[in-house]
């Protein structure tokens, strides 16, 4: 019976969805390897312990809570030291981190402290013989690599939005844990965490993404994309590099080879040609819609539903229709 660790990421005093995903993935792995315990680690400013219950509800047997003012912002130095010490103490077989911006920073540090490798951006995981096998997209999504991890613990960082949070009521017994090193003494200090100006739903968590390209012609016309996203109600706005290069949208909105990699349930590409570097970031979306005036645009090769025509006619009509459809549900 193997103990499996999950890092429960929080920001601004709230659990992030990826925390529930990590606990869910850890629960599945523990169950597949004989039903061991899942130990979650939750760190944050004083008060964060109040969020432990949701972790129990998603399969954590034990929630180790570390509250410290020095954990108000991400603190990878102290966070990694704490996670590594806890992993040694509980003798975890595997450690699951979210492959979020913070988790990707933390997981390799923890692995290095423990002298083991790491598999990042993992989309599925299984115990195979004595090893843990983790699949992850490589070569900009054009090759899927299965990595065999033989170290203990097997450290993996899971791609957001892939492991759907699943309820699985467990005790979620809270244990208070002290920092392994003083969080206030970290050499690197996050001075400020600025919430994004418009992104309410983040690209990595949104079930629907409406993305705009150069076909929109100007920054102002992104209003069309934002209105369509608002009509869906559960959508985030993305962009191509052509658009972020021109400063119409911030770089953090860029989807593609050198931007964000997303796999929403629905991806709507508005005025996007479908360059290979853009496809690298969105080709695993479940359903793809493309609107482009050029019938030969490469985006149509991978779009489940394509409409040929002018975005300035089609998008407002689609926004109205989506609004109406949702109103009638």
């Amino acid at each position: 019976m193997a103990t499996v660790f999950a890092f429960a990421e929080a920001r601004g005093g709230e659990l992030r969805k990826v925390a529930l995903e990590a606990v869910t993935a850890a629960r599945t792995l523990a169950d597949e390897t004989g039903g061991g315990e899942v130990h979650a680690l939750l760190v944050g400013a004083p008060g964060i312990g109040g969020k432990a219950a949701a972790l129990g509800a998603h399969g954590a047997d034990v929630v180790h809570v570390c509250e410290h003012a020095g954990f108000e912002h991400a603190n990878a130095e102290a966070g990694a030291a704490l996670a590594a010490e806890l992993l040694k103490r509980i003798g975890a077989r595997a450690a699951v981190f979210p492959a979020s911006a913070s988790g990707r920073d933390l997981a390799p540090r923890v692995a290095a402290k423990l002298g083991v490798g790491v598999a990042s951006d993992v989309v599925s995981v299984a115990a195979v013989g004595g090893a843990i096998h983790a699949r992850h997209p490589s070569y900009t999504g054009k090759v899927i690599t299965t990595l065999a991890l033989t170290g203990t613990p097997a450290v993996i960082a899971i791609r957001p939005n892939v492991f759907t949070p699943r309820e699985s009521a467990r005790a979620g017994r809270v244990e208070t844990v002290a920092p392994a090193v003083d969080p206030a003494a970290s050499k690197v200090k996050v001075r400020e965490t600025k919430a994004g100006s418009r992104a309410k739903l983040d690209l990595s968590e949104a079930p629907v993404i409406v993305s705009g390209g150069r076909g929109l012609k100007s920054a102002e016309n992104f209003k069309l994309v934002e209105d369509l996203a608002a009509a869906f109600g559960n959508a985030a706005v993305g962009a191509t590099r052509a658009v972020t290069d021109d400063g119409w949208r911030p770089h953090s909105d860029q989807i593609g080879q050198t931007g964000r990699v997303v796999s929403p349930e629905l991806y709507v590409a508005v005025g996007i040609s479908g360059a290979i570097q853009h496809l690298a970031g969105m080709r695993t979306s479940r359903t793809i819609v493309a609107i482009n005036k050029d019938r030969e645009a490469p985006i149509f090769k991978i779009a489940d539903y394509g409409i040929v025509g002018d975005v300035f006619d089609i998008v407002p009509a689609l926004t109205e229709a989506v609004r109406a459809a949702r109103a009638h549900r």
Binding site: V116, G117, V118, A119, V128, A131, H133, P137, S138, G141, K142, V143, I144, T145, T146, L147, A148, L149, T150, G151, R283, T284, I288, A290, R295, I299, F300, K301, I302, A303, D304, Y305, G306, I307, V308, G309, D310, D313, I314, A317, L318, A321
Partner: peptide, 26 residues
């Protein structure tokens, strides 16, 4: 402690489909 067990190409997406032209296709 990490080695490659296998590599594969991702499942191909079904070929794209154009369903219509202009706002009439909405």
């Amino acid at each position: 402690t990490v080695s490659v067990a296998a590599m594969e190409l991702p499942a191909e997406r079904a070929a794209g489909r154009i369903i219509g032209e202009g706002a009439a296709a909405v």
